[in-house]
Design a protein around this nucleic acid. Sequence first.
DNA 1: TTGATGTGCAATTACATGGTTGCAGGTTAC
DNA 2: GTAACCTGCAACCATGTAATTGCACATCAA
Lengths: 120, 120
Amino acid sequence: MSLPDPMASSQVRDAAPLFAALGDETRLQLLLRLSSSGPASIARLSAQARVSRQAIAKHVQVLSAAGLVRTRRRGRERICELEPARLAGAHQCLDLISTLWDDALDRLRSFVEDDSQAHP
Amino acid sequence: MSLPDPMASSQVRDAAPLFAALGDETRLQLLLRLSSSGPASIARLSAQARVSRQAIAKHVQVLSAAGLVRTRRRGRERICELEPARLAGAHQCLDLISTLWDDALDRLRSFVEDDSQAHP
DNA sequence: TTGATGTGCAATTACATGGTTGCAGGTTAC
DNA sequence: GTAACCTGCAACCATGTAATTGCACATCAA
């Protein structure tokens, strides 16, 4: 039995923190909000959230650290917006996982077939 | 400014725990392992891992709770394998997010264009 | 200038998470 | 039966995380 492909392994290492950043409902809601309504300040984002402004600010920091959003100061506000470059990268990671699993299904299927032929 | 689409909102609520389960390198490695080499017991999985057997067992439990893997007893062993049904669901969630972000990019682009026309 | 607004920092709390060890119990092989 | 093996449970520890509150500082608008 072989170890996992080191290529896929390194891609997976990169993907883990990204998924971790996505693995929170509040953060997903923030991304949804930024997707549907465009850039917004921390205050604006927290106005419609159930948690405090500071909680939102922390979540934005997490998303920013994951490279999913970009922030910039505009006067006294901090404007948050989706990071296009990272979006492409995220998309790529998601596709990788999807493909991986599709392949897994195929292999599983043929494995079962081979197995049933090997042990009739 | 409108609140996020409640339909997408509920899908996002479902997706969060899934991403959370994916947001750990060890668990991604496990999925990779199960994808490339098919079903395996806890002991077999932990033999190639850097952490203890119990750690692996816990990770398997998390993946199982997220519906990503299925486990069954075979004698004294517990066999883990990918859960095909959930794979399809996961794929769907991933596509949703991808599409969402692509749309967001488009909207962002047209928003910028509209904005530059509105304020010449 | 003054007040309202928006943000940042620090401390705190509560809880989840990843990891460990030790031990008991079920299962297989000899 | 006995020994080796696989798993499950429980306790425990360290760390990380989500969220809060309070306060200080910057900025805009009147």
